[in-house]
Simulated scan of single mutants.
Amino acid sequence: MPGTAIAPYAQAAAVVNANGSVDRWYGVTNVEKGPLGVYVVEFDSSVDVANSVAIATPLSGASGKSVPILCLVPASGNEIHVHIQEHGKGASDYPFHIIVP
């Protein structure tokens, strides 16, 4: 992962590209690109994913696309699966921000 994010009030944060690569991160150990529209975000063991309310938002700047819907699915251990769908298109690869406060 290329760079560290500044997130003083978060346990973890990341900027994830549509292909699953990460521009900046803090408290994130890995992002794996799954099937179309699915990303697995793994967090450092110090991040309390089970007792937190994670937030993900679409990254702006993708021209010509509708605003996608992101669904966060808690998984086993310290990971969250992010599922992304675009209106009228179904599952879609799309860049996003994720934060665990």
Rank of each mutant, 00 (worst) to 15 (best):
S45D: 11
P74F: 09
L59K: 12
S45N: 15
F43S: 09
D93Y: 01
Y39V: 07
P101V: 05
D23L: 14
D23T: 15
A75D: 04
V40R: 10
Y9H: 05
L59G: 03
N19D: 15
P35Q: 13
D48N: 15
T4M: 09
R24L: 11
D93T: 03
I55W: 03
K89L: 04
T4E: 12
L59V: 03
I69H: 05
G77D: 04
Y94S: 08
D23K: 14
E86L: 06
S63P: 03
D93Q: 02
H83W: 02
A18G: 14
Y39G: 07
T4I: 13
E79P: 01
Y94T: 00
G37R: 12
P68T: 11
Y9P: 00
S92Q: 07
W25V: 06
K89C: 00
V47I: 10
I55F: 07
F43I: 04
A13R: 14
V40F: 09
V16N: 04
V47K: 09
P95Y: 07
A5K: 12
L36V: 10
H97R: 14
Q85W: 03
S63T: 06
S92E: 12
A56I: 08
S92W: 14
Y26D: 05
N17T: 01
L36H: 02
L72Y: 03
G37D: 03
A18P: 03
V49I: 15
G61I: 09
V73K: 10
K89P: 00
P95M: 06
M1Q: 05
H97A: 05
Y9S: 06
E32T: 15
E86K: 08
G90H: 01
Q11N: 00
V28M: 06
H97P: 02
R24T: 12
V22L: 11
A18R: 12
S66W: 00
I98L: 13
S45E: 15
Q11K: 05
I98T: 06
S52C: 09
A56L: 07
V31N: 13
V31W: 03
A54E: 02
T57V: 13
S60W: 02
N30I: 00
I55R: 14
S46Q: 11
V40L: 13
G90A: 05
H81R: 15
A5M: 09
S76T: 11
S21G: 13
G37W: 05
A75L: 09
Q85K: 10
I80F: 04
N51R: 15
G34Q: 13
V67A: 11
S63A: 14
A50M: 03
G3N: 10
K65P: 00
A10L: 08
S66E: 08
A91C: 02
S76P: 00
N78W: 02
A18S: 14
G27E: 07
E32M: 12
P95E: 13
Q85H: 02
A50F: 01
G3Q: 12
P8Y: 08
Y39L: 04
V16Y: 05
I69R: 13
K33L: 12
N17G: 03
I98W: 06
Y94A: 04
A10E: 05
V67K: 07
N51V: 04
I69M: 14
V73T: 15
V22Y: 03
G64P: 04
G3I: 00
L70K: 04
G37I: 10
C71R: 07
V22W: 01
V100I: 15
G64W: 09
V73Q: 14
N19E: 14
G20T: 09
A56S: 14
